[in-house]
Design a protein around this nucleic acid. Structure first.
Lengths: 99, 99
DNA sequence: TTTACAAATGCAAATATATAAATATATTAT
DNA sequence: ATAATATATTTATATATTTGCATTTGTAAA
C-alpha cells in the first residue's frame, strides 16, 4: 500500500516519532533541549518536578523513537536532540495553539 | 507552573494537537489535505480503504483538536487543514524518519 | 569492597485510545 | 412521507499509555 508519496512503513515511523513527542512533559523536555543543549536526567527531573523514574521513562521513549540521543559521562547521562530541526515541530504546534 | 515560555495549558494543547496527528491514518489524511485541498469523508474513507465510521472518527479527532476544520455542503462534509503550516509537521517528521 | 549517587527497569493500577459493527441523524430527491 | 446517500454516534472489546513505587544496575569515590 502506498499513500501519496509515503509508504505505510514511513507513515508508521512518522506516527511513532510524533507519538513520542505528543505529551506535555515531553514537549517541555524538547523545549529545554533547543539549540543543541544537553541535560542530564536529574536536571530535567528537577526542572519538571516529576519523579526521576518517570523522567527516565519519558527520555527512554524519546530516545527509542529517534527523537533524542544520549551519551553517558561518568555518573550522568546527557540527553540531546538528535535532529536540530525537531524543535520546529514544537514551535510550529505552539504557534498553532495560540492562533 | 511555567516551563520556559510555555504554560502548562499551552503544553497540553500542543500535546493534544500532536497526539491527534500522531497516527498513521491521520498523517495520511493530512498529506491528502496539503495546499488547502478539501475532501469529503467518503473520499478519504475510499482513499484509505478503512471503514466509514473509523474515518469519521479520525476526522472528528483531528477537528476536535484544532487540526482540521469542516464545512457541510449538502450531503457531504468537506474537511480541510485549519492551519496551512501544519503540513510542515508532517514534512519535518518524514524528513527525520528517513535520515 | 563498601558507600553514595545517577539512571534504568519491573510492576501494577488507572486511564486513554483504536477499531468495527450497529445504529442514528442529516440532507436531498422522488 | 419515503427512499437513498452521507456522516456521526454509540457500544463493546482489545490494546496501549501513564505514573509512581520499589528495585536494580552503572559509575565513581572513600
Amino acid at each position: 500500500m502506498q499513500v501519496k508519496d509515503l509508504s505505510i512503513e514511513q507513515l508508521e515511523s512518522a506516527a511513532n516519532m510524533l507519538k513520542a513527542i505528543a505529551h506535555p512533559m515531553r514537549i517541555a523536555i524538547l523545549s529545554f533541549l533547543e539549540d543543541g543543549k544537553k541535560l542530564t536526567v536529574t536536571e530535567i527531573h528537577e526542572m519538571l518536578k516529576i519523579e526521576q523514574s518517570t523522567t527516565s521513562h519519558h527520555l527512554g521513549i524519546l530516545k527509542d523513537k529517534g527523537v533524542l540521543s544520549s551519551k553517558r559521562e561518568g555518573k550522568n547521562t546527557y540527553y540531546y536532540l538528535r535532529h536540530a530541526n525537531l524543535s520546529n515541530i514544537v514551535n510550529c504546534v505552539s504557534k498553532c495553539t495560540v492562533g
